[in-house]
Every structure is written in C-alpha cells, then in structure tokens.
Simulated scan of single mutants.
Amino acid sequence: MPTLVGLAYSPWTQKARWALTHHGVPHDFESYVPTLGEPKLRLRLRRPVGKVSVPVWFGDDGGVLDDSWDIARHAEQVGSGSALFEDEAAVARWNALSDEALGAGRAKAVRATLEDRDAQVDALKGIVPDPLRRPLRPVAVVAAKQLLRKYGAPPRSALEDALEKLREGLGDGEHLVGGRFGYADMAMAVVLEFVAPGAHVRRSETERRVWGDARLAKRFADLVAWRDRLIAAHPVRPG
C-alpha cells in the first residue's frame, strides 16, 4: 500500500491528503515527528544532507514524491473523481500564493509558540511522556528556533496580502478557477488555518491559540465561512 508521511495538522499535508481523498486514492498515513523523525526520513529518501520536509509520498512502485503539488498531480493521474487541475497554469499561480502565505503563517505560529510557555509544553505532546513535557520544555524552544532557521520568516504582510487576493479572486463566486471545485480552492482554503483553525483538524486549545489570529479572523470572516462551506461540500480526511 502506498504511504503518505506527513503531519496531520500541517496545511501542506492537508493539501496532499485532500487531493488524495477527492480522487479516492488508497494509501496509508504515517505521522511524522519533527526533528526526531528526520533521520529516518532522510534514510528513506536517501538524502543525507539538504532540506527534507513532509508530506512525502512513497509509492508501491518505489516512486517518491516530496511536494504537495506533485502528490496532488499524481492523485489526479491515478485516481477517480472530477479534475482538480483543468487550468494548470492558473492553479499553479494560486498554489504559489498559497505556499508564500503558508510560509508567513508558519513563521507567525512559531513566533507565537516561542512567546507562550504552555504552547511549548503542548508541542511535546505525543513526543515525550506527559510527566516529562514541562521539564523538557526547552527542547520545544530549540525545535521552534530550528524551524525559523530552516524555513526563514517571510514578511508578516504576506499572509494578509494573500487573503486579500483570495477575496478578490472569489468575487461573488465559490471557486477560484473555472467556476468549479479544484486544487486552487484547496490550496487557498488551508491558508485559513493560520487565521481560524478548522474543525476538521484535531487541535488543543493551546495550539488553536498560537495558530489562530482573532484580528484576522474578524477581518476575513467571510473567507473563514467560505473555507467551512468548501470542506462541508468536499470533505477532507480528518487530521
């Protein structure tokens, strides 16, 4: 059985899982543990140096895909269901905007974690035994700082700019490309995780606090509602 390695709460993993679910592609899901799981992932990828990240698709045929876009395109080729990439050039532009906004959102969430001791303790859930999470809180701080070094910190404005473009792109409609549900919608919908985390992903209250943004949630309430309608109509595999 093909395996998708990823972080259930990660918007990048959500993009891949949503496309796989939409196209009915059978697969197993393997949860990745940041930092601690990196040596194993490097070994499987045969990549001893350089950047590694999830999601990663390991196919039955030995093929490996390590980008949400490539995994979604693979799902389109081997699965069933309506097409998600009818105008690939237009979809690619929205996906690029999604990745830029997600990078800014990730940096925002990491910075919020660095300022929140409870969030640092919460970040170790499932990684170390519960009684050790608070004593080992500095480990979460080190991991958060490593994330900022690894991925950088795009301008804070990138997230808000992308949401304004999403609002403009939707206009009075429900879809971004061709008037029908597609990968562009998926890519931009997951950006809202850094505004108002959706109910489709299991998160603690602490995690929801550092990921969300009350000011942006109010300003872009129409987009949060759009995201929720989209997921209700086209369910994403729960995280």
Rank of each mutant, 00 (worst) to 15 (best):
L163P: 01
L170G: 03
E86F: 03
E86I: 04
D228L: 02
S68V: 12
A107F: 02
L170E: 04
G171P: 07
A123F: 14
E174W: 09
W57S: 12
P131V: 05
M186Q: 05
L230V: 05
D130N: 09
A143H: 15
L192R: 06
T35K: 14
P11R: 09
G59A: 14
L65F: 10
D161K: 01
G63A: 14
L7N: 03
G24N: 10
G239N: 11
G179S: 08
E205P: 03
K125V: 11
V121S: 12
R17W: 05
V33G: 11
V49W: 13
Y9D: 09
W57V: 15
P34I: 02
Y183V: 07
A187W: 07
S10D: 08
D99P: 01
P55F: 10
V141W: 14
D60F: 00
A162S: 07
V142R: 14
R17I: 06
D67N: 15
R203Q: 14
G79A: 14
K145I: 06
G103E: 00
H74T: 08
G79Y: 13
W57Q: 11
S53E: 10
R46D: 12
P135V: 04
V78G: 12
K145G: 07
I231Q: 04
L136S: 03
A19F: 05
A109W: 01
G178H: 11
W12N: 11
K40Q: 12
V52L: 10
S82T: 09
R215D: 07
N95I: 05
D122N: 15
E193T: 09
R202Y: 08
L97T: 14
P34R: 00
